[in-house]
């Protein structure tokens, strides 16, 4: 097995006196697609936000290529440029057009020149079908369109890892597919992805491994077949039963 690209060790996160994550351990290998599933409030998003330090871990460590990202000497900005994130609420820059949203981070963080950034942006916007909207402002787009631009923005940084924080949860049902298709396409390119999602079909069909979280701990990790077809834990079974019955 190759060396893990991201390794979470004994991670603990406390908000006030509420322990949201306790003793989380797992590793993600290069090129892997890992889905994190679980109930709302089980700590999935908090785990993801700890990985790129939008939240500061209370205890434990997170390694990127074997180096701790919590060291004060660690270059956080470069790390974040290598580990992109797609948010549930899109968070496109409201003051910039679609094209600027995808260009500006490349120019600002990676110091690409305008022509290079623009060519790259247009290519990626075309891939997600958003090239006709380059001059629109985020306020003029639908949720699904915004999320596709947000994916293009994250991919434009040529990241090693992409984190998805419930990317389809805020979308109308008919727009979910557009976004999932864009993500599936990315999964085939060999990009490492960690996806917090409620889309069980995506988790089953696209992921290499599935993490099931419950009450701040990892209850079960396994391949999609293990988790969906032969779940070992009773709570995994119960969760999946509810979900799959509903769908």
């Amino acid at each position: 097995m190759t060396e893990a690209i991201i390794e979470v060790q004994n991670l603990k996160k406390v908000f006030g006196d509420h322990e949201v994550l306790s003793d989380i351990n797992f590793a993600v290998n290069p090129g892997e697609v890992v889905s994190i599933i679980g109930r709302s409030g089980s700590g999935k998003s908090t785990l993801l936000r700890n990985i790129n330090l939008l939240e500061q871990p209370t205890a434990g460590d997170i390694l990127f290529h074997g180096a701790s990202i919590l060291e004060s000497s660690f270059d956080l900005a470069q790390y974040r440029a290598h580990v992109g994130m797609v948010f549930q609420s899109f968070n496109l820059f409201n003051n910039l057009t679609v094209l600027q949203n995808v260009m500006t981070p490349q120019q600002t963080v990676l110091h690409r020149d305008a022509a290079e950034a623009k060519a790259h942006a247009l290519e990626l916007l075309a891939q997600v079908g958003m090239d006709p909207y380059v001059n629109a402002k985020p306020a003029q787009l639908s949720g699904g369109q915004k999320q596709r631009v947000a994916i293009a923005r994250a991919v434009a940084m040529d990241p090693e890892v992409l984190l998805f924080d419930e990317p389809t949860s805020a979308l109308d049902p008919e727009m979910v597919d557009d976004v999932l298709n864009a993500m599936k396409q990315l999964a085939t390119t060999g990009l490492t992805m960690i996806v917090v999602t409620h889309e069980m079909a995506f988790a089953r069909d696209v992921s290499d491994r599935v993490v099931f979280m419950d009450q701040g701990v990892i209850a079960e990790i396994g391949t999609p077949e293990q988790i969906f077809d032969h779940p070992a834990e009773a709570r995994t079974q119960e969760f999946l039963k509810r979900y799959l019955n509903r769908a």
């Binding site: 900005a77 790390y79 609420s89 968070n91 496109l92 409201n94 963080v109 923005r153 940084m157």
Partner: peptide, 14 residues
């Protein structure tokens, strides 16, 4: 919106 700060930080902006 707080999300604007988060998105920029997550992209590596200082």
């Amino acid at each position: 919106d707080e999300g604007q700060f988060e998105a920029a930080h997550a992209l590596g902006f200082t």
